[in-house]
Structure formats: C-alpha cells, structure tokens
Simulated scan of single mutants.
Amino acid sequence: MARTKEFDPEAALQCAMELFWRRGYEATSMADLVAHLGIGRASLYATFGSKQELYLKALDRYGRAQNPVLTRELSQPGPVLPAVRAVVRRFAAEATAEATREQGCLVTNTAVERAPHDAAAARRVEQSWDHVETLLHSALVRARAQGELPADRDPLTLARMLLVLLQGLRVVGKASDDPARVRDAAEQALALLA
C-alpha cells in the first residue's frame, strides 16, 4: 500500500520558492530546503525531483502569482498610459522599498544567477520577459489607437525599452543605496511616452 503524503506539496513549494527567492539557488542547499520545509530528503526528492527541478517549479509558481497582477494592471478599460506609468512607478517603488529591495524579483535574480549556464532557467526567464513585453506592447498599441501615444511611436520598441527598464530597475534597486537613481531613471523613461 502506497504511503500518503504527510505534507501539502503546494505549501512546500511556496516555502521553497520563498527560500530560493531570498537566498538564491547556489546559496540554498538541499539540507537548507529539508530544514526550512520540514520535509524528509527522500520525500522532497520523490515529490519535486532534484534541487534544480524544485527551483524551476518554484520559478513557475512565482510567474503564476505575478502574471495576473500585471495583466490586470495593463488590461483595464479606458486610458492606457496612466496604467503603464503606474506599473513603471510600482516597479521603481518596489525596487527601492526597504521591505522588498534586497529580495528583488525572482525572475531577475534567475536571469543574473542561473540563465547564463542553465538552459531551463533561461527559457523560463525568456518566457516571463516575453509575457511582460507582450502585455506592454498590447497596452501601447491600444494607447496609440486611442490617441494617447503619437502615431510615429513604435509600440513594440517602446515595450522592449520598458521591459529592459523594469528589469534594470530591479537590479539597480537591489544593489544601490540611492533610491533617486531608480526613481529618476523611471521618470526619464516615462517622459518618452509623452
């Protein structure tokens, strides 16, 4: 007779995601995961596979939690540019807030730490960036159609610029003690939308 799981896999995955997000992949050992999750090593491997497989599942979970928020922000009816500006300012505020600054963004952290030598992690980073770029592009197409954006502005290149800006805000915010650096960059980029 098969044993039933004595833990909630979704709750364990959430805890693993939080630990990876706070410490990074390399600084988190299997022993750390076993201790933090309160799950035996054999159960952890049987449920999630290797450390890398667990990390990728945690990264997927992070994406599922973040994507609806951004989709909702950029898909509201009515004027579009105020929503785009609010998203950029939210990213800048999160990048410099004491409570979230050090942790940063799990996708951005993965891009810096794992993507250069982990193809599966790099694919997930690209998928996340593609999603954000698509949301921004769609919003900016709507903005141009509604007359909020001049006809000579290319929504795709603006979306790409904003994607790079958002990721850069996360990196600089995590590493810099000067919040003005992040805020000023965000506001300068937003001036390009006028």
Rank of each mutant, 00 (worst) to 15 (best):
L163C: 14
G147R: 11
S29P: 00
A31Y: 05
Y55E: 01
L19C: 07
R181Q: 13
S29C: 00
L163P: 01
A35K: 14
F7R: 10
A65Y: 08
T157R: 13
G173M: 00
A92D: 02
V80W: 02
G40M: 05
Y55W: 04
E133R: 15
T47R: 11
L135P: 04
E148T: 10
R142T: 07
R123I: 03
V84P: 07
E18C: 07
E187N: 11
L192Y: 08
Q52T: 14
L149R: 07
P9I: 05
L106N: 01
D154L: 08
R90V: 02
L44N: 05
A31T: 14
G38C: 06
V141K: 10
V171A: 06
V87K: 08
R142E: 01
L190M: 09
A35C: 03
A2E: 09
V80L: 06
L149K: 06
S138Q: 15
L158I: 09
T28M: 06
A194S: 14
G173P: 03
P9E: 04
Q103T: 15
W21G: 00
L149M: 01
L70K: 11
V132M: 13
D184A: 13
C105F: 05
T134Q: 15
A139N: 05
V164K: 09
E126Q: 14
V80F: 05
R114I: 05
A2I: 12
H117C: 08
A185P: 00
A12M: 12
C105K: 01
C15I: 12
A97R: 02
G40W: 06
G49T: 12
S176A: 11
G147T: 10
Y25N: 03
A65G: 10
T110A: 12
E113C: 06
R23W: 00
R123V: 08
Y25W: 07
A31W: 01
P68Q: 04
V132L: 15
K174S: 13
L59D: 04
Q14R: 15
T96L: 05
D152V: 11
L56H: 13
T71G: 06
A12H: 09
K51H: 06
A139I: 07
R3K: 14
A95C: 04
R101C: 01
R23S: 09
Q66G: 00
A46I: 00
P77L: 07
A16L: 00
R89E: 10
D184L: 14
D177R: 14
E53Q: 15
R181H: 12
L81I: 12
A11I: 09
L56T: 11
H117R: 14
L193F: 04
A119C: 02
L70A: 10
F7M: 02
K51W: 04
M30G: 12
E113S: 06
V132D: 01
V171W: 03
A46Y: 11
V80G: 03
V69F: 12
A194C: 06
L169R: 11
M1N: 09
D184P: 04
V107G: 00
Y45R: 14
P150S: 13
E26M: 09
